[in-house]
């Protein structure tokens, strides 16, 4: 398989139809393998770095679940001190739990010190490595093993943390969201990100076939629908200013996104389901307003 030019895989153990390998592969291709990869504990780490079965063709380090931001900062500092800055970019791949929950302290520290690091959060909206427990980035209404659907509760209550807002508030030079359904957009954003010196944050929506309860063949479709409904807006901030968004030509109702996923299926019959669907639609509407997603032309 040496004839396929890939810095990641094949031979990794991700589930058939998994979303994040698409983002990892595209990022490393875009950086032409000039990357020091830091990976937090999680799906990606488990499927790619078992001892003796390393599928990374770039320098790679996994330390802990919650310290990827700090480890990346340390690599950046070391490269500076040793005069090796021109060797490559420091890139983090971390899941949503590692980013928004347990590791948000070290992430914030890395942002605050403005290390020259591209931090990519692959967001599959729950702790999928351990079997779908809710994280701070699980959307409302999603059924997870720690927010199961019951007679009383319709899955997760509360909202999905706004990581883009949190990143922008740190005043770092580049913040953007992307999706595995839009690889060209992702490629461009990676390229744009590394033009900035300092901390860059890229939030990539990446469906999980088992946790979301979708067929592998729907991975790209589901990710696209998240964008097309306005639930997952693709936005781009440079030096704190919103500079670009992906406009939605004909916005779809959130039901279209929800109905094809097992984690939301109960919303269509649970007594509180309608309320949650309304809430999700309202979130999508807010996104459209906030980021100006509607294509007026």
């Amino acid at each position: 398989m040496n004839d396929i030019r890939s810095y990641f895989g094949p031979g990794h153990g991700a589930c058939p139809g998994c979303g994040f390998p698409i983002a990892v592969k595209i990022t490393l291709e875009t950086l032409e393998g000039k990357a020091f990869v830091v990976n937090s504990t999680g799906c990606l780490e488990i499927v790619s770095s078992m001892y003796g079965r390393n599928v990374w063709a770039v320098p790679y380090i996994h330390s802990l679940f919650e310290n990827a931001g700090a480890v990346a900062g340390g690599i950046d500092a070391a490269l500076k001190a040793l005069g090796r800055k021109n060797e490559g970019h420091v890139v983090v791949f971390a899941g949503d739990g590692a980013t928004a929950d347990i590791g948000i302290g070290t992430l914030s520290g890395m942002f605050d010190r403005n290390h020259d690091v591209l931090y990519i959060c692959y967001d599959n909206e729950a702790y999928q490595n351990t079997g779908n427990q809710q994280s701070g980035l699980t959307p409302p209404g999603a059924s997870t093993t720690t927010t199961p659907v019951g007679d009383l509760l319709p899955g997760k209550m509360g909202r999905k943390k706004d990581m883009i807002g949190i990143a922008v508030a740190h005043g770092i030079p580049y913040v953007a969201s992307a999706s595995i359904a839009f690889p060209n957009d992702l490629r461009r954003k990676v390229k744009r990100a590394i033009e900035f010196e300092g901390a860059k944050y890229l939030h990539v929506h990446a469906p999980c076939v088992t946790g979301w309860g979708i067929d592998g063949k729907l991975t790209v479709e589901v990710a696209r629908l998240a964008v097309e409904t306005g639930l997952y807006p693709l936005v781009e901030y440079e030096n704190g200013r919103l500079v670009r968004v992906m406009k939605l030509k004909k916005r779809k109702p959130v039901e279209e996104y929800l109905k094809i996923q097992r984690r939301f299926r109960h919303l269509f019959k649970h007594p509180l389901g309608e309320k949650i669907i309304k809430e999700l639609q309202q979130i999508a509407d807010e996104n459209v307003k906030r980021y100006g997603l509607e294509d007026e032309g």
């Binding site: 398989m1 895989g9 094949p10 031979g11 990794h12 153990g13 770095s49 001892y51 003796g52 079965r53 390393n54 599928v55 990374w56 063709a57």
Partner: peptide, 12 residues
């Protein structure tokens, strides 16, 4: 527990 160069030995 470092692993040297990439391998694609796991045929999936």
């Amino acid at each position: 527990a470092s692993s040297p160069a990439k391998t694609s030995e796991m045929k999936t």
